[in-house]
Design a protein around this nucleic acid. Structure first.
Lengths: 336, 336
DNA sequence: CTGAAAGCGCTTACAG
DNA sequence: CTGAAAGCGCTTACAG
């Protein structure tokens, strides 16, 4: 069954496509089309179950009312929460969302950027992997609307949502030190990302200020891929070399959860034994680690602002204002 | 900066658009275009950074190589896991994914169905809310490719991924009874969904077979909206009326997690006090509820099969075969 | 108050 | 081996 088009309605009503189009896009009054005709058109459209072909409209207008979102993983709770906020904010503004995971693979990411661009999304929100810069550069050169979050390139002039990673980490670890921890390990991942470096930098600054030597054996770096397996080796290594470790700072909540599973399996009463701190959290921390200190990511804000900044640059008919950077803060729990 | 089009390349090379198009779509050899010309075209395209406008192609071919996914919530771990599988399977087959949450709101869902259709997705995967049938019916009548998972309409002739909810629930609760539970509560939600009814039905069948009367006070139904708050009232009510409840069957892992938070806050040692069973799980159950019995959703299979069935019906040039229903099983842990 | 016509950027049947 | 032309279904400047 063929879908009904403007032409079908026009023919049936012996009107021009132009008139039908004006009415159905809500410009009937502005164009001074008689009420009678307007009603006729609208009724006929409803009767024939007319749904506009937005592909055709997009080709004509050069806009699709669709945004693209590229994240490392859709099922990661942090990213899926942000994806939800983004979709809701987009939806409120009349935009749909195309979503894809890069799986932290630079090549896949570049392909996704190209595909989204080719498919005509009006703008892209991305949590980029370090390496994939060429395609992003090209988009920036084209003045294509794009904004990054969670990760960013300081040398690229693009809009980004940035978070005070170093500062928050610094506060968290300082708190552990004040609570009396002498030997704090940091468990991190993706060391090529500035975001992660900043978190470890905050940790290092604390130790320095407290006059504690930085011990490389206490810095556990877990591969992003297969982290569930890899973290076991990382933790094994720490306990082997530094059996009297008394604190853990996790740079992501995923790492903390995996570590809890590890501790639990080994029969380690981690809540009594260690001072704990973590970037971001999930509600079950309440049971799993009631004394942990966390810096909560402003998920809702990140999602909303990403979309808002993007839409601003899409909808401002004037010159595209790239390079707008927004700095957001963590919320610390319990307040330190 | 205008994007380069086929025409630009054709003009620069003094060739026809036709030739350029044949070469760039990989049909140069088949059309017998000389190697020399082909190289010329490809080099020029690369040089000018040509990226095809897929909107134009879509308008012409009536295909967008894009699928639509509609789920109740993007950040719910169950749905985001499935979304990930779907995106990966789609991607492997050359399809992009548009995603949106219905928030279990039938009106929003109908709008999304219309929007996706208008935007020209080639097919839709949906976990539908009970009420929203009109738009789905219309799509089925149009022979538009659509498949549902997690939830379904037995009276509609559409492709669905169905799971043996009743059977798995039956096995889980039977196990609790065998372990000696006399007074088992069921905590559920969305009572209008067949999926949820089946789970409660499994529970009821167990009680009947065991000769236990069904006690409505032990059936706790949590609203989907604001479940975090509502579940507190539901549990309060159960403990008030049936203080000697000794088992809990949760029809979703979200409900179990919230209940654990509740128990924890009340200082109830739930692992010792209750027999526990749940549909689906998360890895932290290992720590939170080591003795719980779970029926694991075949997430990977659901995602993959949804896409495969959809693509079959999209790509089969012959008649559209709707109405294909696939039955999948749960995995029970520990095996009962 | 209404319409004829061009154009968005592709693909492809048809022609040579 | 290559090209002129129609068409996908809209929008909109222009004309009356």
């Amino acid at each position: 069954m063929k879908r009904t088009s403007l032409k079908d309605i026009a023919e049936k009503l012996q009107l021009s496509q132009t008139t039908v189009s004006w009415v159905l896009t809500g410009n009937g009054d502005r164009r001074g089309i008689s009420k009678a005709t307007q009603d006729l058109v609208r009724n006929c459209a409803a009767e024939m179950n007319y749904q506009p072909n937005l592909i055709a409209r997009s080709l004509n207008l050069g806009k699709t009312k669709t945004l693209g979102l590229i994240i490392p993983s859709i099922s990661d709770f942090f990213y899926s929460s942000i994806a939800m906020e983004i979709e809701q904010t987009a939806s409120k503004n009349g935009y749909s969302l195309m979503i894809a995971s890069s799986e932290s693979n630079p090549e896949k990411e570049e392909n996704l950027l190209r595909t989204f661009r080719s498919k005509g999304v009006d703008g892209i929100i991305i949590a980029p992997t370090k390496k994939s810069k060429n395609e992003i550069k090209r988009l920036i050169k084209e003045k294509f609307p794009i904004v990054s979050f969670d990760r960013f390139f300081p040398d690229l002039e693009m809009s980004s949502i940035v978070i005070d990673n170093k500062e928050s980490s610094y506060k968290l670890v300082r708190h552990l030190i004040r609570k009396g921890c002498k030997k704090i390990a940091v468990i991190t991942t993706n060391p090529h990302l500035i975001t992660m470096c900043s978190r470890v930098d905050g940790y290092k600054q604390d130790l320095e200020e407290a006059g504690i030597d930085i011990n490389p054996d206490l810095i556990g770096c877990v591969t992003y891929d297969k982290y569930e397996l890899n973290i076991i080796n990382v933790l094994d290594a720490i306990f082997e070399k530094e059996a009297d470790v008394d604190g853990f700072f996790f740079t992501t909540h995923i790492l903390a959860l995996e570590a809890f599973l590890y501790f639990n399996k080994k029969g380690i009463n981690f809540n009594e034994k260690f001072g704990l701190a973590c970037i971001h959290s999930v509600s079950t921390f309440e049971i799993l680690a009631p004394y942990i200190n966390v810096a909560e990511m402003p998920v809702k804000e990140i999602g909303e602002k990403s979309v808002n900044i993007l839409l601003e640059s899409i909808e401002s008919k004037k010159k595209n204002r790239c390079g707008k950077t927004l700095q957001l803060g963590f919320a610390l729990y319990p307040p330190l």
